[in-house]
Amino acid sequence: MTSPPAGRDDGSAADPQPLVCDRCGTSAGALADGPPLTWTCSVENGVRRHFCESCSRENLRAIEGRLDSDWW
């Protein structure tokens, strides 16, 4: 759970933040429901990163190569 920014304690939900590909910088715009279904989400060193469809496709083998065998 995150805290609202300092000075803002009105109980409202935080405004959706724009989603940007961590590799190429492509923007998916401000999304309230999460990334588009075609984007990839990765947790690297405890940090959640999102990758657009193009970057995900271009790097699919590298992504799969890091998965534990339980995933494939």
Rank of each mutant, 00 (worst) to 15 (best):
A13I: 15
P16K: 01
G34K: 03
A6V: 07
P36G: 00
V43G: 00
R66A: 13
S54A: 14
E44A: 02
P18F: 01
G34H: 04
G7P: 07
C55S: 05
P5E: 04
R23W: 01
G46Q: 02
A62F: 04
A28H: 01
R66K: 12
N59W: 05
L37A: 13
L37M: 11
S27L: 14
R66G: 14
G29F: 01
E53L: 13
P4N: 10
C55D: 10
T40M: 12
N59T: 12
D10T: 06
D15F: 06
R49S: 08
D9M: 09
V43M: 09
F51D: 00
L67S: 09
E58P: 00
L31P: 02
V47F: 12
D9H: 14
G25F: 03
G25N: 04
T40K: 13
T40A: 13
V20G: 07
L31A: 13
C41Q: 14
G7D: 08
V47N: 10
N59G: 03
C41V: 11
A14M: 04
L31Y: 05
A30R: 12
G34I: 02
E53R: 08
S12G: 05
P35F: 06
S42C: 10
P18E: 05
T38H: 07
R48D: 09
E58L: 05
S56Y: 15
T26R: 11
F51Q: 00
D10P: 03
L67V: 05
D10K: 06
G11C: 07
L60I: 15
S54Y: 05
E64R: 13
R48N: 12
L37T: 14
D10E: 04
S56A: 14
P5D: 03
S3N: 11
V43H: 03
A30N: 14
S27V: 13
P36Q: 00
T38A: 11
P36F: 01
D9P: 03
G11V: 07
A6I: 07
N59A: 09
W39M: 00
L37D: 11
T26L: 08
E64H: 09
Q17I: 09
R57V: 13
A28I: 03
P16M: 01
A32G: 08
L31R: 08
D15K: 14
